[in-house]
Structure formats: C-alpha cells, structure tokens
Design a protein around this nucleic acid. Structure first.
Length: 248
DNA sequence: AACCAGGACGTGA
DNA sequence: TCACGTCATGGT
C-alpha cells in the first residue's frame, strides 16, 4: 500500500516524457482548418498534429477521419496512412456515406499505400456502416450509455488497440491505448512481463492515472515518440533514460 | 537489401 | 488459451 500523494512510477514516467517532448497533439488530421483539405496534392508530409489544442475532433467528419486512420494505421507507418486518407478525400469519399458508395476496386486502389489493402478495404466499409448507424442512433453525438467498445470489438478488423484508439481520440472517452511501443518500453523497464495481456497493461496505466482523455491521449502519444527515439528494434534499449526513473 | 511500421484474424495444438 | 502464419506497401 503506497502513501497518499506519492507519485507512482507510471506517473513519474509521464512527467518525464511530457517535460522532455512536450504535448504531442494527437490524433493528426488532414484538415485542421476546416477548408476541406485545400492542398490534397501535398502528400507525405505529416502536418496534422495540434499540440496543446484538445478541441478536436470538431465535427463528425473529423471524427470519421480518426476512425478511418485508426484502422488504416494497423501495422503501418503514419505517412502511408496519410497518403491513403488524402486519396479518399480526393475522391470525396472520406465520409461514412462515401466509403460504401465506392466500388471495391476504387476503394482498394485509394488505400493501397497503407498496405493490406484487400482486407482493409472491406473492414473500412464495415466501420463506415457502423458509424453511420451510430449517428442515426445518436443524432446529438452524445453516445452516452452506448457500449461503444464492445460494439467496435465485434466488428471484423477492429481489435483492442484500434477500438481504444477510436474511443480515446474520436470519442474522447478515457480508454488507454496499448500498442507495440508501449509494450516494448514497459517490458524493458521491467514493469510488465513479456507475455502480459492487453487488458492487464491497459489496467496498469488506468489504475495509476487520474481518469481523463487528455492525459491518456498525451501519454500514449508520448510513449510512441519516446519509442521512436530510443526503442528502434535493432538498437539496444539500455540507453533509455527512463531506466533511471524506474531505478528507485 | 533485409527489415520494419501507431495489428488483427484464422488455424491447429 | 496460445503460438504461428498471413496479409502488403513504402521508409530506412
């Protein structure tokens, strides 16, 4: 039993990462200024982050873009996803109504840069139809009292990480996201076991943080940033500065 | 020129 | 439950 007011390791790590890297401004959007994506020819440049601004998503269009990105980024780097999203936008199809209208071949071609395009095409369509249905059920965008996580997990192509990403970034619900980077870091720090289950890692963070979407969003994004700097798969993890924080 | 990226699913122990 | 193969493009 720990003393009250004493920071846990999970909280210390967050403080360090935030101090080191600052707010990350996730989830990135192709259209921060509501101009409909006026420069769709600009690809490969990640520009959609909005550090310190937690007012996104501001409409259901941006909400759906996050949902789509969450699926497309599965085991895929973000710049490729951004290209795919811009392709869909060019087709005026980046909407829950637009996706199902595309013929399968056109959809596949548009999302091809994000990889696994055969399966992701069908799964994106399923997600779009689910979101359309949700909007009809909740015209006011409240989504209160609806077990969204369970619904998402029942969809083909949506696993725990994708579901939590959608919950946290599209719906601003306090559901911590556990990804491969998080596992790699936490394992190296000796805070979880190699084979820790998803729900257990998720619970470890949620139990040690004040519940809220902002901290959950930043923490997840900060872990990704930290991993990109210190946890390249080939590199040695021994240089991780977090080891000092955990070490006492 | 292998290796990897903001995973999930189907299958057979 | 769990380990393993599969899906695929484009960066280093």
């Amino acid at each position: 039993m720990r003393e009250k007011n004493q920071k846990t390791v999970i909280q210390k790590i967050y403080d360090y990462l935030l101090e080191a890297y600052g707010p990350q401004g996730w989830w990135p959007l192709t259209d921060l200024h509501g101009n409909g994506g006026s420069n769709p020819t600009k690809t490969g440049s990640v520009q959609g982050y909005h550090p310190g601004d937690y007012t996104y998503p501001r409409n259901s269009k941006q909400q759906f873009e996050i949902i789509s990105g969450a699926l497309l980024t599965q085991n895929t780097s973000w710049p490729q996803v951004e290209t795919a999203l811009l392709n869909l936008k060019r087709l005026n199809a980046l909407s829950p109504e637009g996706i199902p209208c595309l013929d399968p071949e056109t959809l596949k071609e548009a999302i091809k840069p994000a990889g696994y395009y055969n399966q992701k095409a069908g799964r994106l369509k399923i997600l779009a139809e689910w979101f359309s249905d949700l909007q009809e059920r909740t015209p006011d965008r409240s989504a209160e009292g609806i077990p969204i996580r369970e619904e998402l997990l029942s969809l083909k192509g949506v696993g725990p990480e994708t579901a939590d990403s959608i919950l946290l970034y599209a719906f601003k619900q306090p559901s911590f996201v556990v990804d491969a980077y998080t596992r790699r870091i936490m394992t190296n720090l000796g805070l979880i076991g190699e084979k820790a289950k998803y729900e257990d890692v998720k619970a470890l963070f949620e139990e040690n943080l004040l519940e809220g979407p902002v901290v959950y969003q930043e923490y997840h994004a900060l872990l990704v940033e930290h991993a990109k700097r210190h946890y390249k798969k080939k590199g040695a993890y021994g240089e991780c500065p977090l080891l000092k924080i955990v070490g006492d």
